[in-house]
């Protein structure tokens, strides 16, 4: 069962990676600075989690969780900016692509920063559940 927890984490990371590439390469949306930082955290997960699956290692939590946490933190910050919960003047991205440019809005509220946050959150929760299951076994 634990195997599937890591498998689904990997699947979410894969979908997030391919999805972000779809936005930038196929739909030609230029990624903003904060999006790049989140990509830096998301892309390696597709390989790290895969390595953790064959064979399943409990260390996969140790290796991947810090990256997820960093990505999640940037994502939270990005969403707070995006939904104007903190003012943009505090943003590090004053030149180039604005981090609050809206490219998509599905069903009225689903945006690219929100998708990223959902991905990081899902992976984080799956990894935490995995860790708990593993420690219970002992």
């Amino acid at each position: 069962m634990s195997w599937y927890l890591i498998f689904f984490s990997w699947l979410v990371a894969m979908i997030a990676t391919l999805g972000s590439l779809f936005f930038s390469e196929v739909m030609s949306f230029p990624p903003c600075v904060l999006c790049w930082y989140q990509r830096i955290c998301m892309y390696p997960l597709t390989l790290i989690l895969l390595t953790g699956l064959f064979p399943l290692k409990k260390e996969v939590f140790k290796f991947s969780f810090p990256i997820v946490l960093v990505g999640w933190t940037i994502s939270i910050y990005h969403n707070l900016l995006y939904y104007k919960l903190i003012p943009e003047s505090a943003a590090p991205c004053s030149q180039g692509i604005s981090c609050t440019t809206s490219y998509i809005s599905w069903a009225g509220f689903i945006t690219i920063p929100l998708l990223a946050l959902m991905a990081f959150t899902t992976i984080g929760i799956l990894l935490l559940v995995f860790k708990r299951k593993y420690s219970e076994k002992r």
Binding site: W3, F7, W10, L11, M14, I15, L18, L21, F22, V26, M27, L50, L53, F54
Partner: peptide, 25 residues
């Protein structure tokens, strides 16, 4: 089984990506 699941997922994701890209273009 585990390898099969991962291989099938990779294949499905890539096919999905290419198909969607093609449809979008």
């Amino acid at each position: 089984k585990d390898k099969l699941i991962v291989t099938a997922s990779v294949a499905a994701l890539i096919i999905g990506f290419v198909l969607l890209a093609w449809m979008y273009q």
